[in-house]
Amino acid sequence: MSVALAYFRRDFQIWSSYRLAALWQLVTPFMLIGLIYFAGEAIGDRSDLIKEENGSYVAFILVGVAFADVLLGGLNNLPQQIHDQQRLGMLEPTLVAPIRNLSLLTSIWLFRFSLSLVRMTMFMAFGFIALGFWHSVDPSSVILILIAAEITYLALGAFSAAFVILFKEGDPVRLAYAGFSTVIGGAIFPVDALPDWMEPIALLIPLTHALSGIREGLDGGSIADVAPQLITLTIMAVVLVPAALYAFSWALQRAKREGSLGQY
């Protein structure tokens, strides 16, 4: 835990030392919010496809974008950070320190995750305060779903990081998967709107279950109401986490045997 805090502190120090970039990162969500708002208004009421918030597409896409950012961040950040650290030459010096793989992974994830939480809060606050959405929210079901889904995505991120360690290049599976998830996982438009044959594929994607559970919770769904999504995500997490940790440590061992650890 304290290792994670040290990473957080350092990542924050570096992030905030680039003042303009930091400022920019805090401003862009506002621009995106504006865009979403006007696009959503133009599309208007789609209660035929969207059941929450009286079929408001603005509410739908705000949730989709805000949470997809947080969750897919869990997948993207780990390989990205590992790659950056290899490039900076910092991976080896941290690996000679006595830290465990799990600790390393959560540590390099923490700061980017926190940033995405800040962005998510901005999106949700806009919907909640300015547009009056989600006033009957059940926070406990939203948070539980979020935790289960984030852990699932972190595990996928660890797989992807293992890939980067072994093959040095951005993992194509991840890139395809991340884009694909957003499209068919219900972030931008409802899964119901997909062609029938795609719906089973959508069910394999954690984002689908996460967003459906989160939307239900935001609409007042209790933990019992979101139990199906919660159970599905928990099963995914329970299967993926040990497998991902194994893959990551296997990749490290292999890189240590072939001497490719510091290369990128």
Binding site: S2, V3, L5, A6, Y7, R9, R10, Q13, I14, S17, Y18, L88, G89, M90, E92, P93, T94, A97, P98, I99
Partner: peptide
Amino acid sequence: YGDERLFFWRLSAVDNLMFYAALYG
């Protein structure tokens, strides 16, 4: 290692070393 780039140049020596100290508990 003589050729290692283990520090963040934008941070002070103290900040850099505080980070590494944490890795050693």
